[in-house]
Design a binder for these strands. Structure first.
Length: 859
RNA sequence: GCGGGCGUGGCGGAACUGGUAGACGCAAGGGACUUAAAAUCCCUCGGCCGGAAGGCCAUCCGGGUUCGAGUCCCGGCGCCCGCACCA
């Protein structure tokens, strides 16, 4: 007579526990210097309107860490906020005639409810939103601090202009010559812009990477490459008929004797000056500026140059004059915007020299080559070798020659050792409305005047019109017209707003005291919580957001706001959530629920039965329609099932493929767990039952498994091996399901096992775990129950199974005590029949014993 | 072009510093229960030979180091990612 197990009611149970945690204020964090803090956060979302599976994965990972650390006794801070300025709100305003502020706030409300349905252990009292004056007021104060510290400045600059966004893009936002959001070909324009001096921290940011041991190597490497430090030399070339000298950066000063020309960028001052009196040069420069910087364009673009009338004197060879070109392949933004060309040892210079018939003299020869016969054809020789044709450098290796060339240049006053970075200052001006106003007023007499701190915030007006293209702030009737704070004359506000990466570069510090009205953040709170112990998010921010945040933290330290250099002690980059793609015969994308399995393993359109082409799993994206809505999943399977699925099978740093069979299987396990607790396969001892004096074999082995599982799951969670932690928990609960009988020792160990299982699944499936914990008779909620401890004595194996190999091939196993001496193990192995047969009566040549692992007999 | 990563059953993935390859799960097949289906439960599941015991082969391919290699080294092939006219 089996009793019908009561069904696990997801909706009621999840809502119930969310309410209880809320009432108990379980996740509100308070500074407490007596307790060890743990600050864990995930990258805050852009409020697009609905959460997607990437969010579910991100916040599940963070929540497992937060709840686990909490159970381990840490004082955990786990906050949430909204990266709420940005372009989509403006697009929505233009398309749907809804004000950006309203659209954004409604989206936040909707997404907050969705996130809450996941049962995240977040301190919602610290919620912040970057588009609210309470937040951006302090961003503006930071900008003023940066101005005072000389970390922000204004200059005319060639910028990346996105013609669709009608705005400037940072270099980091240009991908393959296209805008990172719009995909439009980026043009070059000269505009007056605000910049932050991130380059002042090039070396600090580079060196700081070394200490970030809990960051993925890949991200550190990407930042290292992005900063792009190269050592070389500055060389000054005297110019014919001019007073000034041409300053060139090179990493190959050793090849100076092979120089056959100099070249400057189209926007180099020298080129600009010469163009004023040379219309043909002006035309050439205009052409260069039109040239796209896309990958295809660069690959196919020919090296082109315009030979000026100026020549440059070789610093080492008296009387040798090098022609000076304006060339399309020289970048104004890197180095000094000018190069010397050594065609024999640089492929670009070689291509250029061949086209314009310039001299190609090798000055470095391979060590095994005959120097007299060595010549360069179509491929430049860029490896190490021996210097030739180079006067006082002849015979040296490249490294030595570099040093000697620089020393000589320095002694002559014609150059110096120099380090150049790829990293450039961060242009933050955006010709957009929905962003943090830059707190500056432009006065015709006083210039750019900072808004006095007492006048902050500079409110972003919400009564704007999107009827005209461009920035609505610029056509607002009243907003920009203000008196100059210095002289009182009629002046105009800066109508540019900040890049949204400005807002996200310090929000993790604001979380420490999100309601501080008069300071950027409270120093004590920031000192307690910072740095973030664990930050979790996508790799797509490996350079942009993470580098800016590291810069901000250093800059804010300089401004006296914070004491740390690095914001994120640990970083984890999660993989993407993927799904198969589907297209109909016309090539149109189909949503997964528009497709069903066809007869022969193929896919067909669920409505029409027409064949559907199944594509490989790719990152879920609206454009390819391969998306699954988390809300629908939580609605039908519950948050716990969705969370468990995010953690099972795929390691968190790899991509995860969403499948129906996967979520169904997870759901079946959730129900199996429920049944295991509600209708266990035998008696469960009372909560406070003492351990029986004698445990039988089954009970004692089950107890070992329980303790082993605690040890394994703990170390798996510590190391972000969540998929393995889930596997260990499944093994434990499978074992508990197989443990049959009502004997006292079995009932007792079953109690221990169920208690332990509930606690171990707590961080992963918090609602179910609470419910099961309560079902087991516990009055204190699991959320306030510490993580289980394991007994090291029980972890130690009673016996070990050692592999017995003959010549490295497995031939059997022997069960031995872990401390069996090697000689005894050897005897046990040699006694095996299989080993005897292979030895064929002869003595073994050698026996290798690796304690607890393997005995290898060499026949 | 430069830099980095990865390659294990039909699939996702385990295998800590070289030591019993394939944990855990998905899919598949067989069976039980059911009028039937779903759910649930039991069994099989890398390949080949064999009735079985067992044997041989097997971690992208080819070499090497080692008593022993998925793991280390050298050389290929393939896939993925980042940067890119950076002087």
């Amino acid at each position: 007579m089996s009793q019908e197990p009561s069904r696990y009611n997801i909706k009621e149970t999840e809502a119930k526990w969310q309410r209880i945690w809320d009432e108990r204020r379980s996740f509100e964090a308070r500074e407490d210097s007596a307790r060890e803090k743990y600050y864990v956060m995930e990258m805050f979302p852009y409020p697009s309107g609905r959460i997607h599976m990437g969010h579910v994965r991100n916040y599940t990972l963070g929540d497992v860490v937060a709840r686990y650390k909490r159970a381990r006794g840490f004082n955990v801070l786990h906050p949430m906020g909204w990266d709420s300025f940005g372009l989509p709100a403006e697009n929505a305003a233009i398309e749907n005639k809804v004000p950006p502020a309203k659209w954004t706030r409604e989206n936040i409300a909707a997404m907050r409810d969705q996130l809450k349905s996941m049962g995240l252990s977040i301190d919602w009292t610290r919620e912040l939103s970057t588009c609210e004056p309470e937040y951006y007021k302090h961003g503006q104060a930071i900008f003023l601090d940066f101005l005072e510290q000389d970390l922000a400045y204004r200059r005319e600059s060639w910028v990346n202009w996105d013609p669709v966004e009608n705005s400037v893009l940072a270099n980091e936002q240009v991908i393959d010559g296209r805008g990172w959001r719009t995909g439009a070909i980026v043009e070059k324009r000269l505009l007056s812009q605000w910049f932050l001096k991130i380059t002042e921290y090039s070396d600090a940011l580079l060196e700081g990477l070394g200490a970030l041991e809990r960051w993925p190597d890949k991200v550190r490497l990407m930042q290292r490459n992005w900063i792009g430090r190269s050592e070389g030399a500055r060389v000054f070339f005297s110019l014919s008929g001019r007073e000034d000298r041409l300053e060139v950066f090179t990493t190959r000063p050793d090849t100076l004797f092979g120089a056959s020309f100099c070249a400057v960028a189209a926007n180099h001052p020298l080129a600009q000056e010469l163009a004023a009196t040379d219309p043909k040069l002006a035309g050439f420069i205009a052409e260069c500026n039109r040239m796209s910087t896309s990958e295809e364009a660069i690959e196919t673009a020919e090296k082109q140059g315009y030979r000026t009338t100026v020549t440059a004197a070789h610093p080492f060879v008296a009387g040798r004059e090098l022609p000076v070109y304006v060339a399309n392949f020289v970048l104004m933004e890197y180095g000094t915007g000018a190069i010397f060309g050594c065609p024999a040892h640089d492929q670009r210079d070689l291509d250029f020299a061949r086209k314009y018939d310039l001299d190609v003299t090798p000055v470095v020869a391979p060590r095994d080559a005959d120097p007299a016969a060595f010549a360069v054809g179509d491929t430049a020789f860029v490896e190490d070798g021996v210097l030739i044709n180079s006067d006082f450098l002849d015979g040296l290796g490249v490294a030595d020659a570099k040093r000697k060339a620089i020393d000589t240049l320095a002694a002559q006053g014609d150059g110096a050792l120099s380090i150049t970075y790829r990293l450039r200052d961060w242009g933050i001006s955006r010709q957009r409305y929905w962003g943090c106003p830059i707190p500056v007023i432009h006065c015709p007499d006083c210039g750019a005047v900072p808004v006095p701190r007492a006048d902050l915030p500079v409110h972003l007006p919400e009564d704007v019109s999107f009827d005209k293209p461009g920035n609505p702030l610029a056509h607002h009737p009243t907003w920009k017209h203000v008196p100059c704070p210095d002289c009182g004359a009629a002046a105009e506000r800066e109508t540019d707003t900040c890049d949204t990466f400005f807002d996200s570069s310090w929000y993790f510090m604001r979380y420490c005291s999100p309601n501080a009205a008069d300071t950027v953040f409270e120093r004590d709170a920031a000192d307690y919580w910072m740095p973030v112990d664990q930050y979790i998010g996508g790799v797509e921010h490996a350079v942009l957001h993470l580098l800016y945040s590291r810069f901000f933290t250093r800059a804010l330290k300089r401004c006296g706001h914070i004491g740390v250099d690095e914001p994120f002690d640990g970083l984890f980059t999660q993989g993407m959530v993927c799904h198969e793609t589907y297209r109909d015969p016309d090539g149109n994308w189909l949503f997964p629920d528009q497709v069903r399995d066809g007869a022969d393993g193929g896919a067909v359109d669920a409505a029409t039965g027409a064949p559907v082409r199944r594509g490989r799993a790719e990152k879920m994206s609206k454009s390819k329609k391969n998306v699954v809505d988390p809300e629908a999943i939580i609605e039908s399977y519950g948050a716990d099932t969705a969370r468990l699925y995010m953690l099972s099978d795929s390691p968190p740093d790899r991509d995860l493929e969403w499948t129906v069979s996967g979520i169904d299987a997870t759901w079946r396990y959730v129900n199996r767990l429920w049944r295991l607790f509600v209708t266990p396969p035998g008696a469960v001892a009372p909560r406070d039952a003492a351990q029986p004096a004698d445990l039988g074999g089954a009970a004692s082995s089950a107890l070992r498994d329980i303790h082993r599982t605690i040890a394994d799951v703990s170390s798996d969670l510590d190391r972000f091996h969540f998929n393995k932690a889930v596997a260990r928990i499944r093994e434990l609960t499978n074992g508990l399901g197989d443990l049959k009988g009502d004997a006292d020792d079995i009932a007792w160990v079953r109690r221990v096992g169920l208690d332990t299982a509930a606690r171990l699944i707590g961080p992963i499936m918090p609602h179910l775990a609470e419910e099961l914990w309560q079902h087991l008779g516990h009055e204190t909620p699991l959320v306030d129950t510490p993580w289980p401890e394991f007994d090291p004595a029980l972890i130690a194996e009673e016996t070990v199974t050692m592999a017995v190999q003959v010549n490295g091939k497995l031939r059997g196993t022997v069960e031995l005590a872990p401390d069996t001496p090697s000689e005894a193990a050897e005897q046990a192995a040699l006694a095996l029949e299989a080993v005897q047969n292979l030895l064929d009566g002869k003595p073994p040549r050698k026996v290798i014993v690796v304690p607890k692992k393997v005995i290898n007999v060499v026949a």
